[in-house]
């Protein structure tokens, strides 16, 4: 964890610096009349101090010297693919509509987790898409994008 902490604490330190500067610009005000950035400035200041402590600890604490394998040995590329897939979904779903968008997403997700069975993947996707559409849009009156037919 030590090496990991060193990196992550620096990231949080940067984040706290940024948030601190931003909240300072918003105006801290005075104790009598606290401004918009008052609490945010306090919080980012504390975060900065704590991240620094974590960083310092990671430097001086004894422990494992090498980074444990965070990503190796795992199929983390799939994680990235899944993230890209749902981002794409969010991007195109309003345009193509819930039904088509969801069908494509589910096909991809089912496929990436157990590739090779196209028929079953398509059948599952079809079922989940229609059933969720029925439950959410029809029974619960949720407003899912209608898509294509608007054009």
């Amino acid at each position: 964890m030590k090496i990991l902490d060193r990196g992550s604490s620096l990231l949080w330190l940067l984040f706290s610096l940024y948030a601190g500067i931003e909240s300072f610009r918003l105006g801290i005000g005075t104790p009598t009349n606290p401004g918009m950035g008052f609490t945010a400035f306090g919080a980012s200041g504390l975060l900065g101090i704590l991240s620094f402590i974590l960083f310092w600890q990671s430097m001086v604490r004894k422990g494992e010297a090498t980074a444990p394998p965070v990503f190796s040995g795992s199929s983390w590329s799939k994680v990235v693919l899944v993230l890209i897939a749902i981002l794409l979904y969010a991007f195109v779903m309003p345009g193509v509509g819930y039904l088509l968008g969801t069908f494509l997403l589910m096909s991809f997700l089912f496929w990436i987790l157990s590739p090779g069975r196209v028929w079953r993947v398509l059948a599952y996707s079809f079922l989940t898409t229609t059933i969720t559409y029925y439950v959410f849009a029809k029974l619960l009156n949720a407003q899912l994008p209608e898509g294509l037919l608007r054009f």
């Binding site: 509509g97 819930y98 039904l99 088509l100 069908f103 196209v118 028929w119 398509l122 079809f126 898409t129 229609t130 209608e146 898509g147 294509l148 037919l149």
Partner: peptide, 18 residues
């Protein structure tokens, strides 16, 4: 056949809007 099935599925996806 697969293409046809896929097409059928896609058509079925088309939302029915009044």
């Amino acid at each position: 056949t697969k293409a046809g099935f896929l097409l059928g599925v896609l058509l079925a996806m088309m939302p029915v809007v009044s």
